[in-house]
Structure formats: C-alpha cells, structure tokens
Design a protein around this nucleic acid. Sequence first.
DNA 1: CTGTATCCTTTTAGATACTG
DNA 2: CAGTATCTAAAAGGATACAG
Lengths: 126, 126
Amino acid sequence: MNDHGKPRPPPPEDCPLERYLHVVSGAWVPRIVWFLRFGPRRYGDLRRDLKSISGKVLTEKLRALESDGLVVRRVIDSSPPQVEYSLSPRGRAFDPVFDAMVKVSAELERLDAIEVSDGATETGRR
Amino acid sequence: MNDHGKPRPPPPEDCPLERYLHVVSGAWVPRIVWFLRFGPRRYGDLRRDLKSISGKVLTEKLRALESDGLVVRRVIDSSPPQVEYSLSPRGRAFDPVFDAMVKVSAELERLDAIEVSDGATETGRR
DNA sequence: CTGTATCCTTTTAGATACTG
DNA sequence: CAGTATCTAAAAGGATACAG
C-alpha cells in the first residue's frame, strides 16, 4: 500500500527558504510547475514536455503537488479518459520565482558574453 | 582520483529554466548560496549554518559552485588555516530568485492563514 | 489515456578515520 | 581549521508489465 492522500507532510522550520524548498525541490517539481504556468496540461502532454521523465515519477510528483495544494487535478470523463492538471491560486503564488529565474538566466548569458569577449582586454595584448 | 578542477560541465539546453537549474539545484546548493548572500563565510561557519550537512558534501558543493563561477574561495594564510567563501558577481546575479523566494514564502503564509480561517465559511455551518 | 505495482539502477548524502 | 578518502545508506528515479 502507498501513502497518497496524506493530508500534509510535517511543516518546515520557520525560514523563507525552507518554506519554499519544502514544496518546490528535486529535479522534477520545478520543471512540472514551469510547464503548468503556460496553462492546463494533460498527463500525456506533461510527459512529452518533460521528455525523459518516467510515468511513475510524473504521477508521484503530481500527487505531491496536489497534496501541497499547488496543482488541481480534473478528470474529464470521456473515452478515452482524460486528466487535466493546472496550477491552483496557491500554485500561481510561485510565479515570482520563475519570473526571477528567467531574469537571472538572461543575466547569466550576458555575463558569459562579457567574460568571453574580455580575454583579449585582460592580457592587453593586441 | 576525483574530477575537481574540470573547466566546466557541458552546457544545458537553451531554456531559461534549464540554464538556472543546471547551476542551482539539489538539496544543498540553494541553501549554501542562501547563507553566502549574507556575506562571506568560512568553511566551518557554513557547516554550522547548514546544520546537518556532512563535510564531504559541503566540500563537493563548494567546489562545484566555484567551478561554475558563483563562489570565490579565498585562503587566509594564518594558523590555524582559514578559508573564506563568498559570492562572486556571477553568484550575486542569482539574488532576484532568492528575493522572490522570500516574497513567495510570505504569500504562502498569507494564503495558509486565509485557508484556515475560512473553514467555517466553507461549510456555512454556524 | 492515465495510471499502479514491482523491481532495479543511479544519484546523493552521511559516517568515520585520517592529513597538512 | 579545512579538508580528503573510503565505505555505506538512503533517496530518487527508470523500466517494464499490467489494469480501469
């Protein structure tokens, strides 16, 4: 038997970073939330978005996100069955972090460009 | 033999999230950067900051951060020897993400408070 | 299509002993 | 103090087969 449906895991210590990492950490959770930001996605869509994730892990992480209240699971009763995942308001509360990651990535790229271009300047040799 | 001193690991695919996670991921790296934001720290300080980290892992992660250019290692030649770690300009480029995490944490706390207080409203039972 | 169950591999991290 | 080396344990993830 598994342990899905636990109301919630124990609370983290009272530190902003711990509070954040308690919910969004590991290799897959940030990526899942990333793709859900663009809109609701079905299970199979996410699996393709995330390329190398296994079905087992995707299910595990979606369940965890659901139990943490970041993700809403909606069953569309059709044939074949469809399940749609989307960010809850609580899940959208994480937007600022992802926005910041985009900003940081751009800045890193800029810093890399400078670093490369000033090899010549550095030695002063021309 | 180990593989420290590698110039750099292979570049990530061209996605802002991947670019970010390539450098800052795993259980310890975000926490190490977090503590370095408050100023330079010595090896032993970090070990205390991070409470349960093992020496082996702290060294590994610091080396990785150094090789990624986020952290600068400075040896203070005294007796006993001291080593000080600090964020490089590239390391400080990550600030916006940590700032956002602080904001998000506060917002989560706020949402939790609402959620709790409206249990009564939800059922309408008085 | 959306999962679950089982088994196995990889990754990550902790414990301990030891060095300059 | 600040590590390194070795060994072991735990966590995370992947492959496969199968079910509603």
